[in-house]
Every structure is written in C-alpha cells, then in structure tokens.
Design a binder for these strands. Structure first.
Lengths: 208, 208
DNA sequence: CTTTCTATTGAGCACTTGCTCAATAACAAC
DNA sequence: GTTGTTATTGAGCAAGTGCTCAATAGAAAG
C-alpha cells in the first residue's frame, strides 16, 4: 500500500542497514537490489527512489563502513618526551586487541577492495584515501620515535616507519579474518613482543 | 567448424590460462564463461565440455594459483646451530623481496578468499590448507629460535612465533597489493630491521 | 474540496548468466 | 568403406539482474 510516509531519511538509513546485512551474507559482489529491499521490508522500486542506482548504494555503504572500522581511529596522542616508542607500542597493541570487535566490518572492508572496486576508481580512491589517512596519522608519532633515537633509525624515514606500523596491524587483520578460530590477540602480541625484546634483533642483517 | 582435434589436455590448459587472464581483468566474481571462452578463442559450449561447470573451472584455477604464489615456497632449511634467528630473518626478508614478482597472483589469491569462497566451503578449505601448510613450514625454524633463547621466548610457543612471522609477510603482501606505487620492499625491510635492533624493543610492554 | 508534492508499490523490460543439447567434423578401429 | 568415439560448435532456455515507470496513497497547502 503506497503512500505511507516515513519521517526524514529514516527509510534511507533502514535500507543502508539492510544492505550491510546482505553484504555480510552475500559479499559485495553478490548483493542484489532485490535482496536488499526484501531485507529492508520495502519494495524494489523504493530502493531506486532513495538511491539512484546500485553503485550509489554501495558507495553510501562504503562511507558508513569506513567510519566504523579502526581506520577511522586515527592516532591523535602526542607522546611525552622520551616515551615515543612506548606510546607507539601501546597504539599498535590497542589496535590489535580491539580488532576482534570489528571483525565483520573488516572482512567487508577487504571485500570492497578486492571485488567491488576493480572497475570503480571512485571506490578505490575512497579506500586508498582512508588507508592513507590512517597511515599518515602515525607519521608524527613515527617522527618522534625517529627523533628520539637518531642513530638507531638512521636512514629510516618517518613515513616508512609508519608504513611498517600500520602494516603490522593490517597483517594482523588478515590473520583475524582468514583464521578467526586460531587467532588470539594476546598470544600474537606476546610473540611479537618477544621478537623485539633482544639486542641482536632477528631482522638485523647487513643493511642493503 | 567443429571436429578439429587438439592433442591431449592442451585445450583445457588454454582455457585455464584464459580464465587466469579474465580473472585478472574482472576479478573472480566477474569472471563469466562467455568471456573466458572468447578469450581462449573457443566456443562457449566447449568450456563446459572440458569443465563440468563454472565452479570446477574456478577450482582448477585456484589449484594452479596456489602452486604459483609464495605460499608454495615452504621453508625447508634447517638452521645451523646458533643461527636460527639469522636464518628466519633471511627467510622473511627473502619472502618480502621476491613478493613484487608475484603481485598479480597474490592479488587474485586474496580475491579468491574474499569473494568466491564465501558460500563455497571447498575453496575456503583449500586456501586455509595452503595457508596452514605455509605457516607450519615455519614451525621447525621457530622452534629452533625458541630453543636458542629460552629465556627470551619464555611462554612463546613455536606456533605463535610462526604465526607472527607469516603475519608479517601477509601484512607486507597487503601493502603491496593495496598500495603498489609507494611500496618499496627495501625501505620496508629496512624500517622493520631498525624497529627490531634495540634492546628496549618497541613492543616491550608489561606482559599480559 | 482541490491541488500538489513526496513516498511507495509492483509489474515488466532489456540484458546477462550458467548451462544444455542436437548437430557435426575429425580421427581411430574394424 | 562402416562404425564409433571424441572434440567442437552455436542456438537457445530458464533464471536472475539492474532499473524504469505508470499508478496511487497519504500529507500539506490553498
């Protein structure tokens, strides 16, 4: 029965949430307008009234997603003098430990990258921008770390260090997504800590 | 003109290669039987003569893929006494540095995981098995590392250490795939080495 | 009450997809 | 030859897809 009004953008939000649920079930590529509208409890036509086309729906969902995952949690803290490393370590550890709470979103995020974005430079740009923001949010901290121990980090740019830090986190995310059962953030972080505890570090080969 | 014969499984192989090319262009989810057969220069019907259905084609392609990427390069070396850490470091470094050569395969591999495998427990199993084999191939080396410095690695199982090692590599792979332009394996490995060089390692917080 | 605007419906069109199938050409065995 | 097997074709079906559109019901304005 047409004509029932719904206040403001309530419907739009409902449809977005339905799209999220469907994407979790069917992946981004398998998301169809019919299943979304059915899940939202509205007609198929209404979906295309609120979203011009499938692509716009997917973009809106991506925006919502990017505002949810860890990628949105940029690092803001300014380390106290002499404690830059501790501060960075804490940030990484926290990122790893809060990760399991966002598992579904993270999985969907990866899915967006690998599937939907292939012929869609707009999506790729959005994701790359979010990743870039996240990485850059680590740069000031990385710069402080480098400044704190100039000899040790000779030749290492803050950017590269930030890359490695976020790379650790992303690798961890992969583990979480691909191997959720045997992934224990505590054990993972512990092993990583042990790796880094020794003077003669494991990666310390001749420099190239 | 039907009837032209082709020796042995030559056709099958040709179609597989075409499927690989199409998957690179369109992603796994966007791979259609029509585009594959067109790319292989054969009729659509022939594809279903050599492969029972789309799924069987995708599985065959996945097998071929898994035999190509770094995942196939299990670690075999037995470290000389006292050099376990150096040996492991070398393995990781080598994995990172040879990675760019397999970029396309790695990207497709991730794509398989995140897309095609969602409703396909068989594919998921295959991929998980390959990842597991890879991780386990690091366990003996990890065990040697732990045995070499028991105090330092107290409470760390060889399995967890192997997880972190392969996690580093996977995180690196993510970086390579998502950010190919600004990714330089040398710089990455360098920063990682610096991170690990210091007594008061960056991850060395209070143990949990 | 009429008009107007917005929200809503569901049928349906054009197109794509996986897959089947009868027809047939080359080759092998007899 | 004849017969049979294997490789190959392309038309076509059934199912599903994104999206359009006439129809319409409610709210708001006059």
């Amino acid at each position: 029965m047409p004509g029932k009004k719904s206040p403001e953008n309530e419907r739009r939000e409902e449809i977005l949430q339905a799209a999220f649920r469907v994407a979790l079930r069917r992946r981004v590529a398998g998301l169809t307008s019919r299943e979304v509208s059915a899940d939202a409890g509205v007609s198929n036509g209404l979906l295309f009234f609120h979203f011009r086309n499938r692509q716009e729906l997917l973009l809106a969902l991506l925006d919502w997603l990017l505002a949810q995952t860890i990628l949105a949690h940029a690092i803001r803290e300014i380390p106290e003098p002499g404690l830059a490393e501790v501060c960075m370590a804490k940030a990484i550890r926290e990122a790893i430990e809060t990760m399991p709470r966002h598992r579904e979103q993270i999985e969907l995020f990866f899915d967006y990258w690998f599937t939907a974005s292939h012929n869609d430079e707009l999506m790729r740009k959005k994701i790359r921008a979010a990743l870039g923001r996240y990485r850059r949010s680590y740069v000031p901290l990385a710069r402080a770390v480098v400044a704190e121990s100039p000899q040790r980090y000779r030749g290492v740019t803050p950017g590269a260090l930030a890359s490695v830090a976020t790379g650790l986190i992303e690798g961890c995310a992969m583990n979480l997504v691909m191997n959720p059962k045997s992934f224990h953030p505590g054990g993972y972080a512990g092993a990583m800590a042990a790796l880094l505890r020794e003077p003669r570090g494991i990666m310390n080969l001749s420099a190239d």
